[in-house]
Write a protein that binds this DNA or RNA. Structure first.
Lengths: 248, 248
DNA sequence: CGATCGTTTGACAAGGGTCAAAATGCGTGG
DNA sequence: CCACGCATTTTGACCCTTGTCAAACGATCG
């Protein structure tokens, strides 16, 4: 959608940019959580990181959804990726990092400080895994936006989101809560709100997915998977016992 | 374009994927070049890295163009990024890395082995800078494909390519050689060959750019820059004396 | 001088965007 | 519990950008 048309504001006034992030395993996540490292809470829609600003500290997302976004001069918005619990914010090997995108809380969000990792530590390994995962998401996103049509983009997103939620145990089976509006989904998929709505409608009619009251239900996963050439994330990097058994 | 329709082959037979790369400064580049680290030559169109295969060694691109690409099951192709001299191939912090995309030689290409960087060395810093640059390209690519129309995508690409070539001293002023076909450009911008051709045509008529016999000429850079909300790469990360003076 | 690859053009179709308005849902305050 | 206001979803009508198919044109290379 076009932020300028909706709010009358232009990017200079509603600025926006951020950095590097991805997924910690549930075990690592709960370790951080219990360590109570500088817990921060962000209300939905609050900007967590502003594009172009220096990155102060590194955080991990404990609960809630966030997204990375960019807003163009004329107000068009692109959501580059969604951040789920376990994803990192502001991790980067650069010495004086500047946020490359904004990061926005999608729902109410809780973050904690992500400790600096000593080389060769388990945490350093987790950070490297995170970077690889994030790269995977970016590559998938580019391919989606460049070559998939609306229905395929939505199908791919549903499958990807399901996988990611399963890894942090926020989804089992084929039903899960999505704290995003259709407008955000449109901005994430490079479509308009109206077209997302129509696409979802036709997919419901065809018995593929149903999305009502914030709950996404996959009605026919087999057909959904056949609809797109979906490339799952490299599980070798991130599999947990529970996730491994579920995906089997 | 659709590789399957053109060649009759499907991805299983014309497979494809790779990893992490970006830009070394010209000085570092020439150091590597003179060191004669396992120089390799790849003819145009040859696959340098195959998607899904383990990454064996890390290389730097010394001369020529390459690209990262993915091919979907039905043959649609997406070029994720172009690799220019100074970019890295297969650099990645993962222990058992698997190529996430294919890497294809666009023109004739020369690579050398990229030495393993000791922590805190200048080379390690260069690798980190490379990773940041690559991320910048991915973010820009996502935003382009999601929110820019055909003319904006082409304009943005011309500006980005000019900047990158200037950093490795392969372009001064507003003229440079492009070893890519319109078909490749189409696959990189998420458009069709026909539409790229028409877009370039209309941009030539409007006095923006001219592309003839492999030479791109920017006719009106000011107007081109006003046409898109182009975000230049973070020069702080990569500026060299020569590049800095030129961009001033 | 064919063969092949890349560029250019035409005619037409279709996916997706735009604008506008009507529903629907939801939290707040009376 | 109801009414109001706001955000979100849904729908309709129409248009425009981009894709598709097909053919012609041009260049380069044995």
């Amino acid at each position: 959608m076009n932020i300028a048309k909706k709010t009358g504001l232009l990017p200079s006034s509603l600025s926006t940019r951020a950095s590097r992030l991805a997924a910690l395993k549930p075990t690592e996540l709960s370790e951080l959580k219990t360590a109570e490292h500088e817990i921060h809470r962000w209300p939905a829609r609050r900007e967590i990181v502003a594009e172009g600003k220096p990155i102060r500290d590194q955080r991990a997302l404990l609960s809630g959804w966030a997204c990375r976004q960019r807003i163009l001069l004329d107000g068009r918005r692109q959501i580059l990726s969604f951040l789920l619990p376990g994803d990192l914010i502001g991790i980067c090997q650069q010495s004086n990092p500047v946020a490359a995108t904004s990061i926005l809380a999608v729902s109410d969000v809780v973050t904690c400080r992500a400790p600096v990792a000593e080389p060769r530590s388990g945490l350093a390994e987790a950070y490297a895994r995170s970077a690889t995962l994030e790269e995977h998401h970016f590559l998938a996103q580019i391919t989606r936006l460049g070559r998939l049509d609306a229905r395929e983009r939505v199908a791919d997103w549903v499958l990807e989101t399901r996988e990611r939620l399963m890894l942090v145990d926020l989804s089992s089976a084929d039903t899960f809560a999505l704290p995003v509006t259709q407008e955000m989904l449109a901005d994430a998929r490079g479509l308009t709100t109206v077209h997302i709505n129509r696409t979802l409608g036709s997919m419901r009619v065809d018995g593929l997915v149903e999305w009502k009251a914030g709950i996404m239900t996959i009605l026919d996963r087999g057909r959904l998977e056949r609809l797109v050439d979906h490339r799952p994330a490299p599980y070798s990097l991130m599999s947990t016992p529970s996730a491994a058994s579920k995906s089997a």
